[in-house]
């Protein structure tokens, strides 16, 4: 059971489809651990359905000319033609494949949330891990975000990450194991955000390695005296452990 949840704004943006895919991925991972937030999102989905269902109020605030939202006659008749077309399959092949594609059990040692299956098809062990010192390694994920760095971070059992700050906001979701910093201890499913200026010093628990999904708006900067960037994308350097 998670103790650190995305706030209502994150959940609303998620339900409304207004997050980038990588941010939505973080929420989705959290939801796979958190029935409470799942329920919340269901309500927020229903709210979207309600907003979509209700008739337009004539007194709605409108900055956009009505005409721009009108559906062209050609689109309408095109749609009605399309659905009359006998050759239109009842279930498009693409949809049928999508549902069966996920049934393949992945051979991960660690059970990962389903939403990570495509990015990590062969388990976390097979990812291209790069050491960032003796205690931490990183594996970047192709989540298709051109403005954010999406990666798994792995901290060895008992490993310490050097004190670091971020130039951009960093969202982290714990996948396995646990780590702590001055704010608390984070367990699988926990969702935390570090804003620029919030330096922290994560330490993995002694009993198990900790793997987290992280999405970073811009490269991390280090605050410690020995801190240096190994390269712009390898952001974390461990203290001697």
């Amino acid at each position: 059971m998670s103790h650190f949840h995305p706030d209502i704004h994150w959940l609303t943006e998620y339900a409304a489809g207004n997050l980038s895919m990588s941010q939505a991925l973080c929420i989705s991972v959290h939801l796979s651990f958190c029935p409470k937030c799942r329920k919340e999102v269901e309500q927020l989905n229903s709210l979207g359905g309600m907003m979509l269902s209700r008739p337009q109020a004539m007194n709605d605030a409108t900055e956009q000319p009505q005409s721009e939202l009108e559906i062209s006659d050609s689109l309408r008749s095109h749609m009605l033609d399309l659905i009359s077309n006998e050759t239109l399959p009842n279930v498009p092949a693409e949809l049928a494949v999508e549902t069966s594609a996920n049934d393949e059990p992945s051979n991960t040692a660690v059970e990962l949330p389903d939403c990570l299956d495509k990015l990590i098809p062969n388990g976390t062990e097979k990812l291209d891990w790069k050491n960032l010192g003796s205690a931490v390694s990183v594996a970047r994920l192709a989540a298709g975000d051109t403005e954010r760095e999406v990666a798994l971070h792995k901290i060895k059992a008992g490993g310490r990450v050097s004190n670091h700050d971020h130039k951009g906001r960093e969202v982290t979701v714990v996948l396995t194991g646990s780590f702590s910093d001055q704010e608390g201890q984070y367990l699988p499913g926990d969702f935390l955000i570090k804003e620029p200026g919030q330096a922290h010093r994560p330490i993995a628990s002694e009993d198990a390695e900790c793997i987290c999904l992280s999405v970073l708006d811009a490269p991390v900067k280090f605050t410690g005296p020995i801190a240096r960037l190994i390269n712009p994308f390898l952001r974390i350097r461990t203290a001697a452990s």
């Binding site: 389903d114 495509k118 990015l119």
Partner: peptide, 13 residues
């Protein structure tokens, strides 16, 4: 042309 195998159905099961 975003390069990822992720689709919306993965993100909102």
């Amino acid at each position: 042309r975003i390069n990822t195998s992720l689709t919306a159905d993965d993100l909102w099961p």
